[in-house]
Amino acid sequence: MTSNRSKNGTGMIEFRGVNKWFGALNVLKDITLSVEPREVVVVCGPSGSGKSTLIRCINGLETIRDGDLVVDGQRLGDPATNMTRLRTEIGFVFQSFNLYPHKTALENVTLAPIHVRKIPRAEAEKAGRELLAKVGLADKVNAYPAQLSGGQQQRVAIARCLGMRPKIMLFDEPTSALDPEMISEVLDVMVAVAEEGMTMMVVTHEMGFARKVAQRVVFMDAGAIVESGTPDEFFSHPKTDRSRAFLSKILRH
């Protein structure tokens, strides 16, 4: 697979010496990481290693204590950065979907485009229907989240993000809350998004997905990035004891 990484431009997402504490707990330790435009980075590691916190910092769901975090050329925490505006460029897919239960699938997809992006309703609805068709849910346009399976809800959630035409998509364990038979339908949609050239950071343990579309796997443990490499390097030849221990646990079955 050819890499789209530019060698000397600034990254779409740049962590430089980022630290974060929850009370006395150092949840992010001196994180330095650059994600290039169109790059797909998979983040993995044991529970509590700071993976979710890492990507939640990117759209400001969590704030950082020190270091620099620059997203799409804008430094977070800088008074000149309009966070609300920056967030419209960043799609975020949650582990628990977080669809709006009082809105239909289509309304979930069109709500932010209409009210935040100020796209005319008719245009937003046309785009919303196309996106739902794209994630295989053309027949569920008027269904409420409670009437959908977990896999369907997560696909609506992905369509909801795409409706904002973001530059970056972040996925926080998107398949962890799903029944096993629904995982692949969500991964297929994510692969399609990746193949269209979206810049993505994905917290997941789905190795098949990582091998298929990721340019890089980042392994975290205890708040620090311990190892980073191509999926093939990481899965076949892990360099550290901690990553070997982690892989032996998730690959045992």
Binding site: L61, R85, F92, N98, A112, V116
Partner: peptide, 8 residues
């Protein structure tokens, strides 16, 4: 969080 993340 879903609202925040979509820029509301």
């Amino acid at each position: 969080e879903a609202g925040v993340a979509s820029g509301m």
